[in-house]
Structure formats: C-alpha cells, structure tokens
Design a protein around this nucleic acid. Structure first.
Lengths: 193, 193
DNA sequence: TCATGCGGTTCGCCTTGACGAACGTCGTCC
DNA sequence: GGACGACGTTCGTCAAGGCGAACCGCATGA
C-alpha cells in the first residue's frame, strides 16, 4: 500500500462475499450452469466465475443483468439474507445535520415504489426551536414523543405533546418542533414520495 | 471501435439514471454536500459527482459505501421510484389485537407495490410479556422506546432498552417484547412485503 | 483406453471506474 | 471591490473490472 497517491478501496464492509454466495445460491437453485447464466445475462462466463468466488467487486450494471437473468429482484443479491439485529442507544449513531441545538439520527430509511420513509430520533433542548420550511408536496410527518414535552405540528397551530403522545401533520406546510423541557426526545416518521 | 474482440456493455436497461437521481435526492435530503458525503463514505468527491450526473456505472462497493454513509438501505438507491400510495390515518384501519394487558393502536398503515409499513404504539405493563410467533418472511420490526424499559428483540437474545433506544430485528423469527416498568411505551415500525 | 463434452477456473488484454488535484462559480465578509 | 471559502465539475492517471480464449477436471461411452 505505502504512499501511492491512488485508490482507497472504500472502507466499508462491502457485501462482496454475501453477493458471491447469493449469486451461487440463486443460480444453483435455478438449475443453471455458469455458462447458461452468463449467456442469458450477457456477461462473460469468466466474470461470473470471479464474482461467485468473491474475488471481484461487480458493477451495478453487471449485477443487474445477472439479477434479471435469474429472475430475482436486485436486492435479493445484495440485501443480507438474515437482517441482523441492530441496536442504537440513545445518543449513538450517525448524527445528521445539527441546526441550533437540535439534531437527529436516522434509524431507518426505506423506500418502495411510490413511497419512502425516514424514521429518526429528534433530540432537542428548550430555547432551540426547530422551524422547518415546507418539504416536498405530499410529505407527511408523524411524531411520537418519547421523553419530555414539546409543541409540535403546523407552525400556526402547534399541539402540546407529552410522553407517548402522537401527532401527524402535513409537512408541506411550515411546521415546528419546540421543546419545553431539557432532553426532549421524539421519534419522527417522515413519509414522502 | 471496429471489430475488436472486446467488451459488450451488458445489454440490460441498467438503472444508472435512477441511481443518479436517488443518490442526489437522498444526499440533499440529508443536507449533505458532495464533499461531506464523499468524505463520510470514503469515496472521491469526483466519483460522487460523476455518479450523480449519471455518467458512470458504480461498483457495488462504492454504492454500498454511499448507501451506508447516507443511512439508507442499498436498495433505496437501486429500486426505481414510482406512483400510487394508500394511506390510512390514525384511528382508521385495523386496530391490532390486544393480548393480555398489551395492546396497540395503529397510527399509520401505508402500502405500496412491494412494501408495506405499519407504524403503531405499543403500551404494556410488566407481567404481560408479548411473545410473537414469526411473521411473514422478510418482515423486519423497528422499535424505539418512548417511556419505561423493556427487553425486546429476538426471543432467544433480547436486548434491554431504555428511553430513546432503538432496535431492529428480523421478525420472521420468534420475537418478544417484555416491559420492565409500568407504563412502558414504544413506537413500532413493522416493515413487510 | 482414449475421445468427447460440459462445468468451472486461469490468463492476457483493453476499457473504464475511482482517485487526487486543479479549476470555474457563487456567496459572504471585511 | 477583492479575498476567502464552500460546492461542484473537469482533467490526467492508475488499478481493477470485464472480456474472449485457452486450459483443467471429471464424467460418459464407444
């Protein structure tokens, strides 16, 4: 490695091995040989061989062709088969944009054809209200208070919430979140297109 | 080009353009600049630029790093966007069964072709553990504790959670929710096909 | 026994993804 | 106005992905 000015192979634990296994599994289940599948997918047999051995990092186009040829959704080759248990303690996790003293960590982001969801935690202190400009048309936010109290909802007419309370409001209007107690925490589900 | 014996760029309509759009959309939603995201993901800013412009075919490792850095599942960058959603407001729709002293109220149920979400509140008292049989394959449950403490997760190996803590687990295995304090409340997001 | 065929791996080669650095473009502040 | 900095794009380079062809291993059968 040394001081070469080049290449840093993307740190993350990329699922190359998992892809290799999934590929082989799906192919064998279909009763296809490497040659068969390679021909169907329009990729070289040698490429397929290397992918199944986990010794290469396929491009999206290549994987896509293989998934199509196998008749499985792309995600079947990529998503880990048994979703592991994931725990995120209060305060841990990727902390996205801080505005004032307000910040949040994304717990779950999922999208399906037509709809996407973000689930995140909002932690805020009094004196740092979070006023949000309207989001994309059709966005709806769902808020469940965890700890503390807050005024939340449409900017003109917020609702006071305590632990366990729930409010949903159209987020394509100006809206607000104003903590009333220290250490106020809430769970936000943002639903958009 | 002529008759060179090389390269056939994988026939299929690969989702490069869709990836470009999804990448940009998720990045901007997170309030990150290209530089920020590139740094987090450990990829070159220039690479990210080219991907968002749809002028390159990323490797799985690269896309994976970006998805991780964005806190979104890999498939969110790959699955195409599309139309039509059905939404049921709080109070409407199915109210999920009460079992023992445990009960729940559906806050939001949304489904789209391929994926469905239920968001509901779980309120439970100690002494009424809720053990659930496996749900449909591929179901994942996300739990955020609001008030109180509970043991939750895979039946064999639950995790203790306090206010603000989060756990996700495959719900196609036996799983459990055991309140440890009176008035324990949690927000549950159930994600299934 | 040796030929034949099929499944899979290895071998050179070319193209291209990914990199750092340099560059253009706006805002912002003194 | 001019300097500075943040964002994003373009440029030149290098390593790795993907390709076809050649190559091994193992069945089958004449």
């Amino acid at each position: 490695m040394t001081d070469g000015p080049n290449k840093t192979p993307a740190q993350s634990g990329a699922p190359i091995a998992a892809i290799a296994a999934a590929l082989r599994q799906h192919r064998q289940r279909s009763g296809l040989s490497m040659g068969d599948l390679a021909a169907r997918a329009g990729v070289a047999k040698s490429t397929l061989s290397q992918l199944e051995s986990g010794s290469a990092n396929p491009s999206v186009e290549t994987l896509w062709s293989l998934a199509t040829a196998l008749g499985v959704p792309f995600s079947a080759l990529v998503d880990p088969p048994a979703p592991a248990v994931r725990v995120l303690r209060a305060g841990e996790g990727p902390t996205l944009a801080a505005e004032g003293a307000t910040f949040s960590a994304t717990l779950l982001a999922a999208s399906a054809p037509g709809v996407s969801f973000d689930v995140y935690r909002v932690v805020a202190e009094p004196g740092h209200p979070r006023n949000s400009e309207p989001h994309a048309t059709g966005t709806v936010e769902h808020l469940v208070m965890a700890t503390g109290r807050a005024l939340a909802g449409i900017a003109d007419d917020p609702v006071e919430l305590g632990p366990g309370d729930y409010v949903a409001y159209p987020a394509d209007l100006p809206h607000t979140f104003r903590p009333l107690e220290p250490g106020t925490t809430a769970v936000m589900v943002s639903q958009y297109r």
